[in-house]
Design a protein around this nucleic acid. Structure first.
Length: 745
DNA sequence: TGGGTGAGCGCC
DNA sequence: AAAAGGCGCTCACCCA
C-alpha cells in the first residue's frame, strides 16, 4: 500500500539551502497525506507551532510517494520521525515523481528538476494555485499565508472534497508514471534508482564533518601566498595607468600579455555645449551692491538709507559660476603587450577598439611560458590561488558584500556541511552535486582541500573511500561484449601499459615494470609515456576524434590515427556496439523545432537508445558541419555523444544500484549501531565516515557489496556480465590522507 | 542592482 | 573522412 505525502515548511535559507531542515528558524507548517485507499486527502495545520511533528507511517505501508521527496524525507529525519527507520527496515520503498518523470522522458532537459505544476497536468492533474506561489515570491512567510489558502494548495479545496492540491496531483502523476514505466520496460530500473535516492538523502542528512581549524590554517597560508604573488605582480603594472589594474580580469590579462586597448571610465571635466566652455555648477553668492547697479564680492558699495537695515551695506544674492562640473566619461588606454598571440586564441570578446581579447588559460600560458615574459609564472600562481581560495575556502566578495566559497556551507554550530546530491540534473543519469559541489574537490596531488574533511567521531573516527578501478572501461566491456576487452578485464590488464607496449613495440610485461617500478633506470620517461597513453584513453572514452586527441595530447595526428586504428582492430566489438547505438538513434528519430544559434526556428531531430537495464538515452541533432551541408545534410547527431552517453550513463546506473544496496545494508545494520555512515559519492566512488571500531567490518562489507555488480545485474536484469568490477578501498584520518586498505588476516 | 553569459577550471 | 563526453562554481562583463 502506498502513502502520498507532502510538507509545507517555513522557507528561511541558510548555507545555500532553501527551507533548510537544518535551520532552527524553519519548521513544518502543514502536512498533507493520502493513503492508497483513501477517498480524500488528510492534513494537519500547525501554523506557528514549532513542536516537531512527523508523518505516521502505518505498518501496511510499502511505498512512500512524493514530489522531490528528498526534501520531505530530510524534514522527517530532522524531526526524528520514529516510524521511518522501521519502514525502511521492513523493506519500505519510495517513489519520487520528479525523478521518475526525468527518467521516463530520457533525461530531456525540460524534465530536469521539473516542477509539479508542469508535470501534474500531463497525468490529469491540475496546475498549482498561483496565489500561494505569488505570496512566497513576495517574501511572505509560510505561517502568514492564510490557512485556508495553504490547505487548498496542499490537499485541494472543500469543493474538491479535499481530494486535490499537491497531494492528489502527486498521486495522479505516480499512478500514470507506473503505467508508463511498465510500458517502456523501465519499472525495475526506476525502482532501483529510487533506492539510490534514499542513499543520497541519507548522505545529505548525515553531512560531512569539517575540521574548521585545519581549513583556517590552510586558508591563512594560501592568503599569505596570494599576497606575496600580488605584491610581485604589482611591479609589472604600468606606472602611468589611469585606472585600477585587475590581474583577475581576463580582459586585463589579455591586454598586458598580448597588447590591447582597455576601456575605462572616470569622472572628469567637460565642455558645456551651450557655452563652449568647461561646464560649471551654478551657485549663489552674496555681493555688495554698487551705485551703478553692479555688484562686487568684497568691495562695499552703497548703504541702506532707511528701514531696519539702515546704515548697513546693501547686498544681494547673485548667480556666479561654481565648481567645474565632472561626469563619468569613457577613455581608452593602450597596452603595448609582451608577445604575439596566435589567431586561434582569440575569444568572442573584443577590446575598446574592436580587436579580439585572447585566451589566457593555462594551456596558453604554458605555450608562451618559453617566451621570457617576466610575470607569467607568478600570474599562473595567482590564478590558481584565486580559484582555490574563492571556490574551496572562503573569500569576502566586495561586490556582493558577502562571503563566497565552500566554507560558507559549513554550519558553525556543529561544523557539519550538508551538501546536495542531485538526481535529475544530467542528460546521462549521472548524479550531480551542488551547494557545495563535492564532486570536483581538487585531488590530493594538487591541493590540501580534502584534508578538511575528517570524521564526525573525532579521534575515534576514520574516513573511507571505496573506488571502482577503471569503471568506464569495464562498462565499455559489458555493453559491447568485446571479447578481447573482456579477456583483458578478466586478466586485470593495465590498459595504459598495454597501450605503451603496443605503441613502443615492447612486451606488456616489460611495460608494467618500466612504467611502475621507481627503481627502473628509465622509469620517469616510461611513466610519462604511460601518462600520455592514459590521456589518449580518456579522450577515446569521451568519443573524441583524432584531431581533438592530437591537440590534447600533443601527439601527431598520424600517430593518433595509427593508435585508433590499432584499437579498433583490437576491440572490434566496440566499433560494432557504437554502430548499433547510432543506428537505433537514427531509426527512432522524431522531429522537433528549436531555434538555432542565429535565433531562427529550425527543425532538428531527437533519437533514442535504450540500455539493457531499461534506461533510455536521448540524443538531439545539431546544425550539420560545412562538409555535410554540401551534401545536402542539414542536421546530424553528435558521434561523441552517442559513444559516451551509454558508457557514462550505465556506469552511473551501476553505481546508483550499488548505492541502494549499500544503504539497505547500512539500514539493516542500524548504521553499525550509529558508528558508520555513507556520506558522499563521486561517480565511481563512495565515501563513508566510520568509528575505528567498525572500520574493517565496514570496509569489507563495502568492497563485497560494490564488487557484486555482476551478480546483482545478472540476477535482477538477466544480464550476462562476466567481467569483474574491482574496487579499491582506502581509509585514513581525513580525505587527503588515505592509504590502501587490506582485509586483515 | 541583478540576471544572464562566456571563459576558465575543478572533478569523473 | 571529418565531429572533445558529463557536471557546478567563480569571476568579470554586459545589459536591462
Amino acid at each position: 500500500m502506498y502513502l502520498v505525502f507532502d510538507l509545507e515548511t517555513e522557507t528561511y535559507s541558510s548555507h545555500k539551502r532553501k527551507a533548510s531542515p537544518f535551520d532552527s528558524r524553519n519548521h513544518v507548517v502543514a502536512r498533507g497525506w493520502k493513503a492508497q485507499n483513501d477517498t480524500k486527502c488528510s492534513y494537519e495545520y500547525y501554523g506557528a507551532d514549532r513542536t516537531k511533528t512527523y508523518l505516521r507511517i502505518p505498518d501496511q505501508t510499502t511505498m512512500l510517494v512524493g514530489y522531490n521527496i528528498k526534501f520531505d524525507l530530510l524534514w522527517e529525519m530532522a524531526n526524528g520521525n520514529p516510524d521511518l527507520h522501521s519502514f525502511y527496515k521492513r523493506g519500505g520503498k519510495i517513489w519520487d515523481c520528479q525523478y521518475a518523470e526525468y527518467l521516463l522522458n530520457a533525461q530531456h532537459p525540460d524534465s530536469q528538476m521539473a516542477a509539479l505544476t508542469d508535470v501534474a497536468p500531463l497525468y490529469g492533474g491540475t496546475k498549482k494555485i498561483d496565489a500561494v506561489k505569488a505570496l512566497w515570491e513576495a517574501g511572505c512567510k509560510t505561517v502568514d499565508i492564510p490557512e485556508d489558502l495553504l490547505i487548498d494548495y496542499l490537499v485541494g479545496t472543500e469543493e474538491e472534497s479535499r481530494n486535490g492540491g499537491d497531494i492528489r496531483n502527486t498521486e495522479l502523476a505516480f499512478l500514470g508514471q507506473i503505467q508508463r514505466a511498465i510500458r517502456l520496460g523501465m519499472l525495475k530500473m526506476i525502482q532501483d534508482r529510487m533506492d539510490s535516492l534514499l542513499a543520497t538523502t541519507d548522505m545529505e542528512f548525515r553531512g560531512l564533518h569539517v575540521d574548521v581549524n585545519e581549513a583556517k590554517r590552510r586558508l591563512n597560508i594560501l592568503n599569505a601566498e596570494l599576497a606575496e604573488a600580488e605584491a610581485e605582480l604589482a611591479q609589472y603594472i604600468p606606472d602611468d595607468l589611469p585606472f585600477e589594474f585587475n590581474w583577475g580580469s581576463k580582459y586585463h590579462a589579455s591586454y598586458i600579455i598580448f597588447g590591447g586597448t582597455a576601456k575605462y571610465s572616470k569622472q572628469t571635466t567637460y565642455i558645456d555645449e551651450a557655452t563652449g566652455e568647461l561646464a560649471r555648477l551654478k551657485t549663489k553668492e552674496r555681493h555688495y551692491v554698487h551705485a551703478d547697479g553692479s555688484t562686487h564680492p568684497t568691495e562695499p558699495g552703497i548703504k541702506y538709507l532707511s528701514g531696519k537695515n539702515k546704515g548697513e551695506y546693501k547686498t544681494k544674492m547673485v548667480d556666479v559660476p561654481g565648481e567645474l562640473k565632472v561626469k563619468y566619461q569613457d577613455f581608452t588606454y593602450k597596452f603595448p603587450g609582451y608577445t604575439e598571440p596566435k589567431d586561434e586564441w582569440a575569444t568572442k570578446n573584443v577590446d575598446a577598439v574592436g580587436l579580439p581579447v585572447y585566451q589566457t588559460n593555462s594551456d596558453v600560458i604554458t605555450e608562451i611560458s618559453i617566451r621570457n615574459i617576466p610575470f607569467l609564472k607568478v600570474l599562473s600562481k595567482k590564478q590558481a590561488l584565486d580559484k582555490e581560495i574563492g571556490t574551496y575556502y572562503l573569500r569576502f566578495d566586495e561586490k556582493k558584500k558577502e562571503y563566497v566559497g565552500m566554507l560558507t556551507c559549513v554550519q558553525p554550530s556543529d561544523k557539519m556541511l550538508h551538501h546536495k546530491l542531485n538526481h535529475t540534473s544530467t542528460v546521462t543519469t549521472r548524479l550531480s552535486s551542488s551547494d557545495p559541489n563535492l564532486q570536483n574537490l581538487p585531488r590530493g596531488d594538487k591541493s590540501e582541500v580534502k584534508a578538511m574533511f575528517d570524521s564526525r567521531f573525532g579521534e575515534d573516527g576514520e574516513m573511507i573511500e571505496a573506488d571502482y578501478s577503471q569503471l568506464e572501461v569495464v562498462v565499455q566491456g559489458v555493453l559491447s561484449g568485446d571479447k578481447n576487452l573482456c579477456d583483458f578485464l578478466r586478466a586485470q590488464i593495465d590498459f595504459h601499459c598495454k597501450r605503451v607496449a603496443a605503441k613502443f613495440g615492447i612486451a606488456y610485461e616489460d611495460a608494467l615494470v618500466w612504467c611502475k617500478d621507481e627503481n627502473y633506470p628509465d622509469y620517469k620517461m616510461w611513466k610519462a609515456r604511460r601518462t600520455g597513453c592514459k590521456e589518449f584513453s580518456f579522450q577515446r572514452a569521451y568519443g573524441a576524434g583524432a584531431p581533438a586527441i592530437a591537440a590534447a595530447t600533443g601527439m601527431s595526428l598520424s600517430d593518433v590515427e595509427e593508435l585508433i586504428e590499432a584499437e579498433e582492430a583490437l576491440f572490434p566489438g566496440i566499433v560494432e556496439f557504437n554502430a548499433l547505438v547510432e543506428s537505433a538513434v537514427k531509426k527512432s528519430a522524431v522531429p522537433f523545432q528549436s531555434p538555432n544559434d542565429a535565433g531562427q526556428w529550425k527543425t532538428y531531430r531527437r533519437g533514442f537508445w535504450q540500455a539493457p537495464t531499461g534506461t533510455m538515452y536521448s540524443f538531439r541533432t545539431y546544425d550539420a558541419q560545412e562538409w555535410q551541408r554540401k551534401r545536402g545534410i542539414t542536421d546530424s547527431f553528435s558521434p561523441p555523444e552517442m559513444k559516451n552517453y551509454p558508457v557514462q550513463g550505465t556506469g552511473g546506473e551501476f553505481v546508483q544500484g550499488i548505492l541502494g544496496l549499500l544503504w539497505r545494508h547500512f539500514i539493516s545494520k542500524d548504521f553499525y549501531n550509529g558508528r558508520a555512515y555513507l556520506v558522499n559519492t563521486v561517480h565511481d566512488c563512495v565515501w563513508a565516515d566510520v568509528h575505528k571500531s567498525v572500520r574493517d567490518e565496514v570496509a569489507a562489507d563495502m568492497k563485497r557489496i560494490m564488487e557484486s555488480i555482476p551478480e546483482y545485474y545478472n540476477n535482477r536484469y538477466g544480464m550476462k556480465i562476466d567481467v569483474p568490477f574491482p574496487v579499491e578501498v582506502e581509509y585514513g584520518p581525513n580525505m587527503n590522507k588515505l592509504h590502501h586498505w587490506k582485509q586483515p588476516g
